[in-house]
Design a protein around this nucleic acid. Structure first.
Lengths: 200, 200
DNA sequence: AAACATACATACAGAAATGTATGTATGTTT
DNA sequence: AAACATACATACATTTCTGTATGTATGTTT
């Protein structure tokens, strides 16, 4: 029996790790609390000690890691405002590069993008999406004000293009693994940015 | 009691309609056969008469409608081979335009894209994705042979760009509904195609 | 108009998962 | 070192869904 605080935190992590792996492999609904607990080397007693129920586990799982787009938010925020579109391009590429090697992020993204189902999860995703969209649109608006945005595109439209491309790349790569995410992603992003910039 | 063949087919449709709606709203796992049956105005007895189980229902649901990308396949196949990229652009736009007004297709897409979970469903999706990818890559290869493909892009890369954009547009629009799918989609597709074509 | 098949409804049995209650060995505090 | 809290394991009660078996009213065939 393990009973120290360190041991307890280790159990907490083990349960979350096991759940994350099982969820991303078999799906949330198909994974039982018994399965999770046994995979973590404990019983359901331990699970119910640390978490109220499966939904509570999901909340902990989500707040334990940063989602890829969340990273975009941070990256874009901590930088200056000159050349807004260049900023977006760099931040976008770093998101892809990070995602490509961070298996935890991949599992989390797979789990949560496969679940517009659950109303709670859907709520988190929706809120998060709105935050990211607002940020990107804000950047596009600044670009417009500085005259660096192709007049053929409204800020809203530029933001949609950015997000569609990034989310599309992440999803498609996760499913097929048929292309080098970072390499091809950089190429595509760069080419799209040149489109958004060029006054043509 | 209804017992004629017409009535029976009507029951069959009613069950599928109810299931489609409930699945796209609450998710597959969270929807019980009892709920489906009652929503269709029948009992589980009727359900088990028409379908073996939930998985059988899913198969019927999938083969009842055409997926959006399936439509792309058909559209691209029934046309000639001159100007392959222009063909892709037109087919892509028609996919978006159809999807925007076809609520059944929207529900089906939502249901199946939210379920890389289930192994059967995942298998169908994977196979389907491969088919579509192969088609698009084939078109890109023909474009390359005719010298109409921007040499900066390999056929594989062009296909990824196409599919990422279309799937991304469909997913993002389905979640946010924050932009006119067909209008903005046409704009984005057209601009991307000009990129793939232009020898720059 | 029997005889039979169809299209369901109803009833029941079983499994499986959840939640809770309780037991207990070990740490922690005083 | 006694008293208490922690971190679980074990056992049980309950729910819930599924699958199947059976009943039955209506169509269909001969």
């Amino acid at each position: 029996m393990r009973r120290t605080k360190e041991d307890s935190e280790q159990t907490w992590s083990a349960i979350l790790d096991a759940a994350e792996r099982l969820f991303s492999e078999k799906g949330i609904a198909a994974t039982t609390l018994e399965t999770i607990s046994r995979a973590a080397g404990v019983t359901r007693g331990a699970f119910y000690w640390h978490f109220k129920d499966k939904s509570d586990l999901m909340a902990a799982m989500r707040s334990r890691r940063t989602l890829p787009q969340q990273e975009l938010l941070l990256l874009a925020a901590e930088r200056g405002h000159e050349d807004p579109l260049g900023l977006l391009e760099i931040a976008g590429h770093e998101v892809l590069a990070t995602f490509e090697v961070d298996e935890g992020q991949q599992r989390l993204f797979r789990i949560f993008s496969n679940h517009g189902e659950d109303s709670e999860v859907a709520g988190w995703i929706a809120q998060h999406d709105r935050d990211v969209f607002d940020l990107v649109r804000g950047v596009a608006e600044r670009a417009q004000q500085v005259g660096m945005l192709n007049p053929a595109f409204a800020p809203d439209e530029a933001a949609v293009l950015m997000l569609v491309t990034i989310n599309g790349l992440l999803s498609e790569w996760l499913r097929s693994r048929s292309f080098p995410l970072s390499t091809l992603g950089r190429k595509i992003l760069s080419v799209q940015m040149s489109l958004l910039k060029r006054p043509q």
